[in-house]
């Protein structure tokens, strides 16, 4: 018995040695982008001109006062139409390896195209967008300035919006500063981070965005008991992709309730609890939960600079 324990411990030690580098990297303080283009993108982002009835803009669902995400469980588009999933945050989305919950867009430009077209979101088509912008002197001058052309084309719209979104990074979160050795975490936060790694959250939530770099199944251990809405199966039609989603970023997570793809969880504690049950296969103690949540709260960064700039 003792021998078995000893052997086990040695095995464990050898495993611990493999915790090599920090699996989370801090955001850069700033990112290089074309300022004029980004500003144009910013105008477009906030302008409902891009939706069919001019009721909805990108910012309608990506609320910058709500961590860049939608406070509603599912988004509401033109003519009050409901979406299927909870809009994820636009902050730091530049660092995601794919866009959308099921990763159907490979980059931001690809992503921006979809809501504009989606009948339940903005319900537009390329020609209409072009027509509207070309008859708008304000935009025409802006586009000419950026793209040196008199004719606004749809790709430019996407390009400008993507450039703006690129600028939407939230640096200097407490945790980033901790990683850089600028501040110390409280013992609770530190314990939370340790648990985060120890319990296996880190296996999926890692990298610069603490997530957003792989597809994972919700309910890997204990099955998720709700309908699989907007999962990867919808794209691939593979059984393997049932309940499979892009791992969401945990940056600014404290700001972006409700949680999960379906926006079914209202609080962070509940979300942590559910993740532990479905994906790790156990329940957390209150203490553990408290520590992890306090760690997650250190991931809230500064509002992107570009949002403070003059419109």
């Amino acid at each position: 018995m003792d021998k078995a324990f000893l052997a086990f411990f040695i095995l464990l030690l050898s495993y611990i040695f493999l915790f090599a580098k920090e699996p989370i990297t801090p955001l850069p303080k700033s990112i290089k982008y074309d300022k004029e283009k980004a500003i144009l993108g910013k105008y477009l982002f906030f302008d409902p001109i891009l939706s069919k009835d001019k009721s909805t803009s990108c910012a309608s669902c990506h609320d910058f006062n709500h961590g860049g995400a939608d406070p509603r469980p599912v988004s509401i588009g033109v003519e009050g139409k409901k979406g299927k999933v909870n809009a994820p945050t636009v902050y730091n989305s530049y660092f995601n390896f794919r866009q959308f919950w099921n990763g159907r867009a490979k980059d931001l430009k690809d992503q921006a195209k979809c809501p504009i077209h989606a009948p339940n979101e903005m319900a537009m088509n390329e020609k209409l967008v072009e027509k509207r912008l070309n008859s708008n002197t304000f935009y025409k001058t802006l586009f000419k300035k950026v793209y040196k052309t008199d004719k606004v084309e749809f790709w430019m719209v996407l390009d400008a919006i993507a450039e703006f979104e690129k600028a939407l990074i939230t640096p200097d979160s407490k945790f980033d500063r901790y990683l850089k050795g600028e501040v110390k975490l409280s013992s609770l936060e530190k314990k939370g981070y340790l648990l985060f790694k120890q319990l296996g959250c880190i296996t999926c939530h890692n990298g610069i965005n603490i997530g957003g770099n792989s597809f994972q199944k919700i309910g890997a251990i204990n099955p998720y008991n709700k309908e699989p809405i907007g999962d990867r199966f919808e794209i691939t039609k593979r059984e393997f992709d049932r309940y499979r989603y892009k791992v969401p970023s945990l940056r600014n997570i404290a700001l972006t309730a409700p949680y999960f793809h379906d926006g079914s969880v209202d609080t962070l504690e509940e979300a942590v609890d559910k993740m532990a049950y479905h994906n790790l296969g156990f329940t957390l103690s209150e203490m553990e939960k408290k520590a992890i949540v306090s760690f997650l709260k250190t991931l809230t960064g500064k509002k992107p600079k570009i949002l403070n700039d003059e419109k």
């Binding site: 611990i16 493999l18 915790f19 580098k21 296996g200 890692n206 770099n213």
Partner: peptide, 8 residues
Amino acid sequence: LFLYKNFD
């Protein structure tokens, strides 16, 4: 091999 690894 590693217990956890940055996917980035």
